[in-house]
């Protein structure tokens, strides 16, 4: 097995979309997410010499991105002077005690879980898309994620519709296999 190596010149191509979606899941803002990804790449470059090759490149970048997300929340918290978190437990002043348990979400109410599941699903799909041959992933993404028309894609990539549908077919078949175990 080959030891893990960093290839910074391929980072954007290989990992940008995955990191981007990860960041969106954490900060829910496209612009901030984009900035965090950029900062992650630069920080990764600066500390590339600390990379020991124990982890895959992507895992290592995600670890950096996690720090960036935390830093981001720290920054906005101190800006607002809200380092201290106050929780209003109850509107009723005569409520007995201040029980945090009262504020715990009802585990039987759907909603929160659903969102986390969607976030994981998105990353799982992105992971599988990144494993496709480059042209297939490009065509699939343009068609499925960006929702572009067949005509526009053919024009942009200089292919004909039957090429496009062959690539879509291969991409979709691979994705079904890749996602199979946990999602189907």
């Amino acid at each position: 097995m080959i030891a893990n190596e960093l290839q910074p010149d391929k980072w954007v191509e290989l990992h940008a979309d995955y990191l981007f979606n990860y960041a969106i899941g954490k900060v829910s803002d496209v612009e901030i997410a984009k900035d965090l990804v950029q900062e992650t790449f630069i920080a990764g470059l600066n500390s590339a010499k600390n990379f020991k090759g124990d982890a895959a490149e992507r895992t290592w970048l995600i670890a950096i991105l996690k720090r960036k997300v935390i830093d981001h929340y720290r920054k906005i918290n101190s800006k607002k002077g809200k380092a201290e978190v106050r929780i209003q437990y109850s509107d009723q002043t005569d409520a007995e005690g201040e029980w945090l348990e009262e504020r715990v979400a009802d585990p039987f109410v759907k909603g929160g879980d659903q969102e986390i599941e969607n976030e994981e699903l998105g990353l799982a799909i992105q992971n599988c898309i990144d494993k496709l041959p480059k042209k297939q992933s490009r065509v699939f993404t343009m068609k499925t994620i960006q929702g572009m028309s067949t005509e526009d894609i053919c024009k942009e990539l200089g292919i004909n519709p039957s090429n496009l549908w062959v690539m879509i077919h291969r991409a979709r078949t691979s994705l079904m296999g890749c996602l199979n175990q946990s999602w189907f």
Binding site: A16, F20, V30, V37, I125
Partner: peptide, 15 residues
């Protein structure tokens, strides 16, 4: 069809 449903639910975005 399930794959299409999953892709729609995932709300993936790309740069």
């Amino acid at each position: 069809t399930k794959l299409t449903k999953l892709c729609n639910e995932s709300k993936l975005q790309i740069l």
